[in-house]
Design a protein around this nucleic acid. Structure first.
Lengths: 265, 265
DNA sequence: TAGTGGTCTAGACCACATA
DNA sequence: ATGTGGTCTAGACCACTAC
């Protein structure tokens, strides 16, 4: 008799233990899905911060009044979605963009040969950073209202001495209050790690739309190419927990020295 | 005491049952991984063909002399890799590219708005199809030797009346002996479904390298664009079981009416 | 009604990391 | 030595599908 759609206090059991799942309710939700939702809520509310350990499976099982195996299945799914990271013998950790190992997790551009980029761009120049009001298009992408305050920035990433990426990004003004060009420029590491550390915003997934385009004069100048050079246009919407869009990013990638890698399965 | 690296007859147990995993061998492989390997081998050898049901978890457990839960975990992973498909109440099936539901699984091009493409291209024209000997480059991609026989084809895909994709593909001559332009042209459905049905070659994953390029005169003509029109270059290597490369494909996509979709997580 | 996959539990033991 | 996640088992019951 699993509960279909209740809201539960943490320390209250989702249902009397000992009684497995089931019931003929129209919207049936397995116990482990409910546990997954509770863990997700704790992640959203910042009970456990990026990089920290969460309680052991045994502790969580006691807290939620379910078996350890049920907690395990909930964590399995969260780990598959890259929200948690399991480390045998050490514990389960909240995923972070600051990890040395998975830095630039959303960057799919790779050098043509010789892995000379050694994990990340050598140089990041903030060209512009300003506050403005959302156009209808930007507002739609960020689930805001037209005219809401947004922050816009433009930057250029340079690999091995070659300016390779020129990107514009838009962030909702509310969650990112206090972000300035200086802070962007001073931070060494992935931008998403800065968002986590300074603004408590963790990007968990993103959708991209990719096209081939020609640059305008300004973009061509920043990348050091002619306006006849075809470039990869990558429009990304990045989401935090709960599928809330938190960033719109429009990048132009040079693909004469790099390529965009994708894996299909 | 799980076996680290033996080769096992199907009906022989991976190890005496009742004894869980473990041992301090340098290369330790969990039981369910060994079972996964055995199932994989049956898939490769065609014991169960695309679209067919495989034996129930209970039957497989008896055959391999392990518990149903261990078989379940092995199947879980194979299902996550899209090699098997579970259907509650019906059984577990071998995945196929011929399924109505997952047709064109590797095609990531989507129309800008209004889902007018109704699942797949309206028209597929075979421009060319010939046998030749592999260049060094083609041979490397297909894990062949330079000079080995390969089959090359070129085709154009048209969506909503607009020629949108022009692609060249290379196939190893051996596995695809007997493939002709006529057979390619006559087959209605995804090309990978034809490969399954006629040649027993099932593509299970693929890697793509994406760039922005300009077309040559022939390509521009086939797509009805000028040579100054930037196009998406998509180079794909598709693999069958065992990570064996079975196709090299080089596509040019028009991205004025479509975009290449990608999901990052 | 029977058979399939899906969920849940409980307990045992192993592998790994840390102290 | 302790605690963590990882594997394996056995058994119960539920949900779905087909007959």
């Amino acid at each position: 008799m699993a509960i279909p759609a209740f809201s539960l206090a943490d320390t209250e059991p989702p249902l009397p233990p000992g009684a497995p799942s089931g019931s003929a309710t129209p919207a049936f939700s397995p116990l482990y899905q409910q546990i997954k939702g509770l863990i997700l809520r704790s992640l959203q509310q910042g009970e456990w911060k990026p990089g920290e350990v969460i309680p052991s499976e045994f502790d969580l099982a006691a807290r939620f009044r379910v078996s350890q195996g049920t907690v395990r299945k909930a964590i399995d799914e969260l780990a598959a979605e890259n929200l948690l990271i399991r480390r045998q013998g050490r514990g389960t950790f909240v995923a972070t963009h600051a990890e040395q190992h998975v830095q630039y997790r959303f960057l799919r551009l790779e050098p043509d040969s010789g892995t000379t980029d050694s994990e990340g761009p050598a140089q990041r120049d903030i060209i512009d950073c300003r506050r403005l009001r959302a156009s209808a298009e930007i507002a739609r992408a960020l689930a805001l209202r037209t005219g809401d305050p947004v922050l816009q920035a433009r930057r250029v990433l340079t690999f091995a001495g070659v300016p390779t990426i020129c990107e514009d990004l838009w962030l909702p003004g509310g969650p990112f209050k206090g972000l300035t060009a200086e802070r962007l420029a001073d931070y060494h590491g992935p931008m998403y790690a800065l968002f986590e550390a300074e603004f408590g915003v963790r990007m968990v997934r993103a959708d991209e739309k990719i096209r081939a385009v020609l640059p305008d004069a300004a973009q061509a100048g920043l990348l050091g190419v002619t306006q006849a050079t075809p470039l990869l246009s990558v429009e990304r919407i990045a989401y935090t927990y709960n599928d809330a869009p938190m960033e719109l990013r429009r990048g132009l990638y040079r693909t004469d020295t790099h390529y965009y890698r994708n894996h299909l399965s």
